[in-house]
């Protein structure tokens, strides 16, 4: 386990040095986040004072509601696409085979590489909260952060598993990834990132119930916007925990299978 974290730290250091060599890009990412929030800040003003029934259970205001949606979406994006992005970029750079060309350890190396992406996305998640609080004056319930941290940990686990499943598709078929389509793009529509799921027709809400982000957003918003007690979110947390257990098991098994298949096909470095 210690070795795993050393590999993780090596990836983090490498990514940081690489990022630091593109200083303007780092600054522009922050500016872009502020602009993105500005759009939703003004959209929120359209609804302010209208007293939407859909938003009442989330404290009534649209902007804090969507900030949590955007922050969580950026986190799950790193989980879902992190491992695939690592594999793709190392394939393009020509570094995948030197990285994995040794006997054994390939799974550990790639898992550590994927987890290092969470550091970056965690920074973005924190930036969403800090910028929206300091620049746009949003107030979050500080007492809800422990519950938010717990739901974030379960979400990271669930999407790390889905990320491995997604990377297995990439290794096996190179292009075309149904996992990203369903749990990434469709999740933005069905999980309530931009609007409460209550506005969706019942049958679409039923589909959204199969997406972990739906539960993560429900619990996260309850914790930070209304200060709900953990007990009130027990069912959603249990479902999210089950998602995490299943996706980690299925993700790890499928990723190992795809890695062996790629080595058999000799296609590890092909894209």
């Amino acid at each position: 386990m210690f070795n795993f974290f050393r590999v993780w730290a090596a990836f983090f250091r490498r990514d940081f040095l690489n990022l630091a060599s593109y200083r303007l890009s780092f600054f522009m990412a922050l500016v872009s986040l502020v602009f993105y929030l500005l759009i939703f800040f003004f959209v929120g003003r359209v609804f302010s004072g209208l007293g939407s029934a859909y938003l009442s259970r989330y404290g009534g205001a649209y902007f804090p509601f969507v900030v949590i949606g955007l922050a969580m979406q950026s986190l799950v994006g790193a989980g879902l696409g992190g491992l695939s992005q690592v594999i793709s970029s190392e394939q393009y750079l020509g570094t995948l085979e030197p990285m994995l060309g040794r006997r054994g350890g390939a799974f550990r190396v790639l898992a550590a590489a994927s987890l290092s992406r969470y550091i970056t996305s965690s920074g973005r998640l924190i930036a969403y909260f800090v910028v929206s609080a300091l620049v746009f004056g949003v107030s979050f319930r500080l007492g809800g952060f422990p519950l938010f941290a717990a739901v974030t940990a379960l979400t990271v686990a669930a999407y790390f598993g889905l990320g491995m499943f997604s990377a297995a598709f990439l290794l096996a078929f190179k292009q075309g990834n149904p996992v990203n389509l369903f749990f990434g793009q469709l999740a933005a529509l069905l999980s309530g990132v931009y609007f409460p799921v209550e506005v969706l027709p019942d049958w679409l809400r039923a589909v959204g119930a199969f997406i972990p982000l739906t539960y993560a957003l429900e619990v996260g918003r309850s914790a930070l916007l209304t200060g709900a007690a953990p007990a009130a979110s027990a069912k959603a947390l249990a479902i999210l925990g089950s998602f995490a257990a299943v996706s980690l098991a299925v993700g790890a098994a499928s990723f190992r299978w795809a890695l062996v298949r790629a080595k058999r096909d000799g296609s590890l470095s092909q894209y």
Partner: peptide, 19 residues
């Protein structure tokens, strides 16, 4: 093309050494 071109030679080796 099997190195990270924006990193130094030493940093590249340091990374692979841990792996």
């Amino acid at each position: 093309r099997s190195f990270y071109w924006r990193l130094s030679g030493a940093e590249n080796l340091r990374f692979f050494a841990v792996l």
